[in-house]
Design a protein around this nucleic acid. Structure first.
Lengths: 348, 348
DNA sequence: TTGTAAGCGTTATCAG
DNA sequence: CTGATAACGCTTACAA
């Protein structure tokens, strides 16, 4: 491999000058610069980033860990991360943690080994390795959380208002004449699930219907949605509306309803969360909360870079806008007033 | 940050010994080893991977570029890559190229900068940067292709028998009594599209039906499938079966049929390709070719590591097994014999 | 504007 | 079994 030394020799300059041509060209005289560049071309030289990193203590990389990369919600977020990172001159080191603590720790350890300049974690658990870094460096620690938000961690985060979004969904179901509403939660220990649950419960309380709210738990997957739905179908009274905390679980619920010959939306309304691409293509098209997935990803990168550049004194919580998207999976409930069939459909 | 030097000092040994404890512990006396390890613990030392890489010229990283990470097919493949890489002690540097040549080149350049030990590209274009590496190092160049396969490149690859799979699909459609069959291709310039097209055409020829085979082009996305389907619906005679080269396009086709009030599978049979997770949850569940997505990913890593370890003299083409999965989106065609309704459904 | 030289933190070689 | 020492290839004061 050709090194800067080869370039310097061939161009008849010192290594320092050759290096400068590549990093601070304006410090070098025009003629020498051109000469060096020509040699760089001719020899096909590329800077050895490892050596450069050792010297500068910057890697130009960020680690991103995600619970499950094949989950369409996360893959959109990652796409946003990737784009923003690339624009800012960073490469993305991807880690699929499969929701396993041990893998989360493994990726976190890479930060200590200086394999990357910072880390974005999209799960809700703060690896203990990172907790230590945080203890030591406080809000200057290059750590950002995405999708989830736990104020007590002291970590910057980009997310939506999960409680507010869940409230809106419930409110609209009640307004449509539903009374027996069920929730299908995500993993119990995540703050995201907790926040949405809080929002949903608040809406139920505000209507005096908290006693009729029933709950099942899933793990965001289609299969878990199907299972939860089947359990709900067996209950008396059977819910007339099911609000799932992910679109995939909602799709599982619709599939379960189809198998059980329960017409959707006539006999059962279903609401999802996220607005993944498939949401509009399933039958019936899914009413859901649209999360700005790519934006969340971009924002986490922005937050991280602010820390890396030293312009961030305290943790930031960035709440991005969500939106209730009404499609055909929600119909009037048994208590609907004759005239009102609820908000008009929105197509997009 | 604490360095190996700090550890050595604190443990009262030389840097060399301290380093050995971490990399070749068996060369160090038990007592010193334990002493050093205790210090490592106490000081919370982690090896600086940048310095180590500079010395060893290994990074422990591999670059993986993918045309679109939010495509569910690719995200599954990546998951396989990620798993296999992690098991082998490699980290994955992810690149979403959005099918843009320039981005492909950018990631390829990272190999020259020694940001990674090797690269796996899942698109079909060999970046010119890599072509140069290949010219220089031949089959020892740490470059592997996945999903696609172009023999002339001289690059190892993991993929399925695309032509064979397409043949099977067509053959089964003809056997079900279809005569007017349409294809919705992927991007025209990809060998994968070309191979599937060849297989499909061969099946048509074998039945003497090549004259009735019609073709539209998409880009694998749901939206492109919908568009292509609408064009096909306008043709005379209208195809009774549409074979899409991706499940997402097939889902778009089903959605288009629903809008156009064409019953599926009664009036229109639809076949996809890949067997993404959603394939079984759409209505009707999709008949498709199952690709071993995670396996393809794992295999590319295996091939790359073989090269990195110097045990690979010539490019390898690994053909992984596919399987035709029959679900409900295919029905009998107008020329079906009364008794036969085709293969029995397979549920899984 | 250019060159000299001192590291960055490891690992590997070679003696002891 | 352990230690001294020389790289790895680059960047950056500092000096000229």
């Amino acid at each position: 491999m050709t090194t800067i030394r080869d370039v310097a020799t061939a161009a008849g300059v010192s290594r320092a000058t050759a290096a400068r041509v590549l990093s601070n060209p304006e410090l070098v005289a025009e003629t020498t610069r051109l000469r060096v560049l020509e040699v760089v071309q001719r020899l096909g030289y590329s800077r050895n980033s490892v050596a450069a990193s050792l010297r500068t203590t910057r890697t130009g990389r960020i680690i991103v860990t995600v619970p499950d990369i094949s989950n369409p919600f996360f893959s959109r977020v990652i796409r946003g991360v990737e784009e923003a990172a690339q624009e800012a001159g960073y490469a993305v080191l991807l880690g699929d943690t499969r929701n396993e603590r041990e893998r989360e720790e493994q990726y976190a350890e890479m930060l200590n080994r200086r394999e990357a300049d910072g880390i974005i974690f999209l799960g809700h658990r703060l690896p203990t390795t990172l907790a230590r870094v945080l203890d030591r460096d406080g809000s200057r620690a290059p750590i950002v959380n995405g999708c989830e938000f736990t104020p007590s961690l002291g970590v910057s985060s980009a997310h939506i208002d999960n409680a507010g979004a869940a409230y809106e969904v419930m409110d609209s179901l009640y307004a449509m004449g539903h009374r027996d509403v069920a929730l299908v939660l995500g993993p119990q220990d995540s703050p995201l699930t907790r926040d949405r649950l809080i929002g949903a419960q608040r809406a139920a309380e505000d209507r005096g219907l908290i006693g009729r709210l029933v709950v099942e738990t899933g793990d965001f997957s289609v299969e878990s949605g199907r299972r939860a739905a089947n359990l709900l179908f067996a209950r008396t009274p059977r819910p007339t509306a099911i609000f799932c905390f992910s679109d995939e679980m909602a799709i599982g619920t619709i599939a379960a309803a189809r198998s059980a010959q329960i017409a959707c939306p006539e006999a059962l309304s279903v609401v999802g969360f996220d607005d993944i691409q498939m949401a509009r293509y399933v039958d019936p098209p899914l009413t859901t909360i649209r999360q700005p997935m790519a934006e969340i990803g971009r924002k986490t990168v922005e937050l991280l870079i602010a820390i890396l550049q030293g312009r961030q004194s305290a943790p930031v919580s960035a709440t991005l806008p969500h939106r209730l998207i009404i499609r055909q999976s929600v119909g009037a409930g048994p208590f609907a007033r004759a005239a009102s069939t609820g908000p008009t459909d929105e197509r997009s």
